[in-house]
Simulated assay, not measured.
Amino acid sequence: MTVYDAVFALDDPDVLVGAGLSCPACLSERTSLFVDVVDGGLDARGACGDCGATWALALAPQQLLRLSLDPPPQADVRWSRQFPPALLGEIGEDWDA
């Protein structure tokens, strides 16, 4: 499975965050994202509701924070019940991913 880097910052408007979560195959924003912990590491998987494509997404701690506190309205972001808050890490000077 191809891993893509998320391309939005903590303070980006909803439209840019939504674009960063869009399908890399067809560019649809009708996607879902499931964030989980696998073998002690972060695992974010995307799925497209239009073309059926699936992908992995690399998220920085600041992006996780943005998605957890203020997800864009069109985003379908789901979280594992086993997601430890410690994975968010500390927000340093490089807060915009």
Results as ranks from 00 to 15, higher is better:
Ala60Thr: 05
Glu29Met: 03
Arg81Glu: 14
Leu69Cys: 15
Asp50Val: 14
Ser80Tyr: 06
Pro13Cys: 13
Gly46Thr: 04
Leu57Gln: 08
Gly18Val: 09
Gly20Pro: 09
Ala53Asn: 04
Phe83Asn: 02
Ala9Leu: 03
Ala60His: 01
Ala56Cys: 02
Asp5Ala: 04
Ala9Asp: 12
Leu59Asn: 04
Tyr4His: 14
Thr54Val: 14
Gly18Lys: 06
Gly49Thr: 01
Cys26Ile: 01
Ala6Thr: 10
Glu90Gln: 12
Ala53Cys: 03
Leu33Ala: 02
Gly40Val: 13
Leu59Cys: 05
Asp5Val: 05
Asp36Trp: 10
Leu27Ala: 14
Asp94Thr: 06
Tyr4Ile: 09
Gln82Lys: 14
Leu87Val: 07
Pro61Met: 10
Val3Leu: 12
Phe34Thr: 04
Phe34Trp: 08
Cys51Arg: 02
Ala56Trp: 00
Asp76Leu: 09
Leu88Pro: 09
Pro73Phe: 03
Tyr4Trp: 15
Arg45Val: 15
Ala58Met: 11
Ser28Phe: 00
Val7His: 13
Gly18Tyr: 03
Leu27Ser: 15
Trp79Leu: 14
Leu69Ala: 15
Gln62Asp: 08
Ser22Cys: 08
Asp43Cys: 10
Pro84Gln: 06
Leu88Phe: 15
Pro72Met: 12
Ile91Glu: 07
Leu67Glu: 07
Asp50Gly: 04
Ala86Asp: 14
Leu64Lys: 00
Gly89Arg: 10
Val7Arg: 15
Leu67Asn: 05
Ala53Trp: 01
Arg78Gly: 11
Arg78Gln: 09
Gln74Ser: 13
Gln62Thr: 12
Leu21Ser: 06
Asp14Thr: 11
Gln62Val: 10
Arg81Val: 13
Met1Ser: 13
Val3Glu: 10
Ala44Ile: 04
Leu69Lys: 09
Asp96Glu: 11
Arg45Ser: 11
Gly40Ser: 15
Phe83Pro: 08
Ala97Met: 00
Pro71Phe: 05
Leu87His: 09
Gln82Cys: 09
Met1Lys: 03
Glu90Asn: 10
Leu65Asp: 06
Leu67Gly: 06
Ala44Arg: 00
Phe8Ser: 03
Asp11Gly: 05
Cys51Thr: 03
Cys23Phe: 00
Phe34Ile: 01
Leu33Arg: 02
Asp12Thr: 11
Leu10His: 08
Gln74Val: 13
Phe8His: 08
Ala56Met: 00
Leu16Asp: 09
Gln62His: 02
Ser68Tyr: 06
Glu29Thr: 07
Arg30Pro: 00
Gly49Val: 01
Pro61Cys: 06
Cys51Gln: 03
Leu88Gly: 05
Leu10Ala: 05
Leu88Ala: 04
Glu29Gly: 01
Val77Pro: 03
Pro73Leu: 15
Arg30Gln: 12
Leu69His: 10
Pro24Val: 11
Ala44Leu: 07
Val17Trp: 12
Trp95Pro: 00
Asp96Pro: 03
Asp96Met: 10
Ser28Ala: 12
Ala53Ile: 01
Val3Pro: 01
Ser28Gln: 02
